[in-house]
Design a protein around this nucleic acid. Structure first.
Length: 561
RNA sequence: GCGCCCAUAGCUCAACCGGAUAGAGCAACGGCCUUCUAAGCCGUAGGUUGCAGGUUCGAAUCCUGCUGGGCGCGCCA
């Protein structure tokens, strides 16, 4: 419908240019939006407002001229000029209702598109170091990142989900020492406990499994314990595998799967870190000071230069980061999105600066970043800070166990990434109307129930009869649902383009609301076959779109509640 | 002190990269179950979009300066 209007307008402008009414060189800016208010029709355009000045006409005058020049179309019932010069389009009821047929015809693919043309996109998210179970922040990253991937897949991109982690640095050393201490029977408050050791209960489990000689299998590795409490390297390898498995289980429970696990250590093993340093030195963007090797990132927009190689010879995390992103680029990803917590936002300019300094043709603003703000968890109005298992933070598993996967995913992805999030456990677990997840799922279950009813009454859905009578869907409530359904593809496209999964969540709430309203206002199971089937088809289409939308969020669509 | 993000109804949040009278839910108040799931619906009330300027036909949205909050400012990741 929207496309129809756009092409109608293009036709009108072309005709007017041809007649010399409008100057040939006039730039064309056509924006057609769905209206908020039914009184303004179904779609409106501001074209007359936007082009009035360059066209040298008054907005309303231009609007009138445009309308007169508009080609005929059966899809448009009425056109009005309103306000300062908006042109409002009223869709023919029959044409609008065709979206129902379209939804039923497309099924699971309704809302999907090929905008991405199969282009490769990589999304890196979660990327937690294997030092503990995933916490809520990782959970938000997982929910947003995975939802983004689903959106990109739905819009025709070839998506790679990637998880990057450091399996070698100081933090891992610290982890090994903590496990060793536990293996020796020490607790966090005993003498001899490593400074900054990991205090969580899970460290005890790691130590016990290590001593017992167990074998752990994670998504990207399998390690058997040696059991020798003095072999720190063996402990480290075992602990990393153990926590990788732990995180895998967290992710699995959350319904998130990765295509690639990328190890920071592999960058060293394959000489990519060395190669990156050399390239940067050759490029003349480095200098030595205080015994360290610096990169002049200030040449590329950073506020201070950064150390690449420490005085004692080791590299800072910054350098492997650059090497890693160079590797992404070399793997052919023109689009890379990094989903991270905003507490790491300082790496953005730094990594981009490092990539520019390499001078290998990487575009300036590459890669893209989606940064999410902090998550606070509350119960009974009080902030929850501790998890027994993890020690100092609330884990993803805690949330899934307590409120379920659907609510956890929905709550973590339903807010804009750049606003702080309060995760209210009481709300998420409440099986009541306060809970948006239930509100949406209930709408889905209601349609299913309606269909069961139709079966039981031996009045099963008649597809052909329904489609022949879509014009009978003429109440305001039905039209509202129809219009909402028609907008779904656009919402998916926008959410993907802007990297804003919360738009899908909001849409689903709106659609569920429209449906509930309609459900109460318009009885479906009426005696008249034509009417009943037309209404059933609207229910079916709603169910389909709810399902498609929920699927984009990784949330289930239950048949009954 | 510097940098990034945020500020919308009493509360939690929307508002589709500038559009018409800023929308939902919760909380409050009043209605709707012998009829398809009341986990729902209808209605009432609730706003100077933090403050002050600016840009233009038009601003919650863009710019500047404030105020308040979060995060960051390691040769940690």
């Amino acid at each position: 419908m929207k496309d129809t209007i756009v092409s109608l307008l293009e036709g009108a402008v072309a005709a007017l240019k041809h007649q010399g009414v409008l100057p040939d060189e006039l730039a064309l800016v056509i924006k057609v939006d769905p209206t908020k208010d039914k009184a303004h029709g179904d779609y409106a355009t501001n074209i007359a407002l936007a082009m009035a000045k360059p066209a040298g006409m008054k907005p309303r005058e231009l609007a009138e001229t445009l309308i007169d020049a508009l080609p005929e179309s059966a899809a448009v019932e009425k056109i009005e000029i309103a306000g300062p010069g908006f042109i409002n389009f009223f869709a023919a009821t029959d044409a609008a209702a065709q979206v129902v047929a379209q939804v039923l015809d497309c099924g699971d693919t309704f809302g999907r598109s090929m905008i991405g043309k199969g282009e490769k996109v990589q999304v890196e998210f979660v990327s937690a170091n294997p030092t503990g179970p995933l916490h809520v922040g990782h959970g938000r990253g997982a929910a947003i990142g995975d939802c983004l991937c689903r959106l990109l897949e739905a819009t025709g991109y070839d998506v790679t989900r990637e998880f990057y982690y450091n399996d070698a640095g100081a933090q891992i050393q610290n982890l090994a020492l903590s496990v060793q201490a536990r293996a020796q029977g020490l607790g966090p408050d005993d003498a001899g406990w490593p400074a900054d050791g990991y205090r969580g209960e899970y460290i005890v489990d790691v130590a016990n499994d290590y001593l017992a000689g167990k074998t752990v299998t994670a998504d990207d590795r399998e390690v058997s314990a040696i059991g020798d409490p003095n072999d720190l390297d063996a402990i480290q390898a075992f602990a990393v595998a153990w926590l990788r498995r732990e995180q895998d289980l967290d992710l699995k429970a959350f319904g998130v799967e990765f295509d690639v696990y990328f190890l920071e250590s592999s960058l060293y093993e394959e000489g990519k870190v060395e190669a990156t340093v050399e390239k940067l030195i050759r490029g003349g963007h480095t200098y030595e000071e205080d015994g360290a090797l610096w990169l002049r990132t200030t040449d590329f927009g950073d506020d201070k230069d950064r150390v690449m190689r420490k005085r004692e010879g080791g590299y800072t995390y910054f350098l492997p980061d650059v090497a890693y992103h160079l590797d992404k680029w070399q793997r052919g990803f023109k689009t890379v999105i990094n989903e991270q917590g905003a507490d790491h936002h300082s790496t953005v300019t730094r990594v981009r600066a490092g990539l520019q300094a390499l001078e290998v043709g990487i575009p300036k603003g590459w890669p893209d970043y989606v940064l999410h703000q902090m998550v606070m968890v509350t119960r009974s109005g009080v902030e929850v800070k501790l998890s027994k298992r993890a020690g100092s933070y609330v884990t993803v598993r805690d949330l899934i166990d307590e409120v379920g996967r659907d609510a956890t995913r929905f709550f973590l992805a339903a807010r804009r990434a750049d606003s702080q999030l309060t995760f209210d456990i009481d709300l998420a677990r409440s099986q009541s109307n306060d809970n948006p997840v239930y509100y949406i799922q209930y709408a889905h279950a209601r349609v299913c129930s309606m269909l069961r009813k139709a079966q039981d009454a031996e009045q099963p859905f008649d597809h052909d009869l329904a489609l022949a009578n879509l014009a009978l869907l003429e109440s305001d409530q039905e039209k509202a649902v129809i219009n909402r359904l028609a907008r779904f593809p656009e919402v998916v496209e926008n959410a993907a383009k802007n990297r804003e999964p919360q738009q899908v969540a909001q849409y689903l709430l709106d659609l569920a609301g429209d449906f509930h309203t309609c459900y109460n206002a318009v009885k479906v199971m009426v005696d008249d076959d034509a009417t009943r089937n037309a209404r059933l088809s609207l229910g079916l289409a709603t169910r389909q779109v709810l399902r498609n939308g929920l699927d984009l969020m990784g949330v289930s669509a239950p048949e009954e509640m």
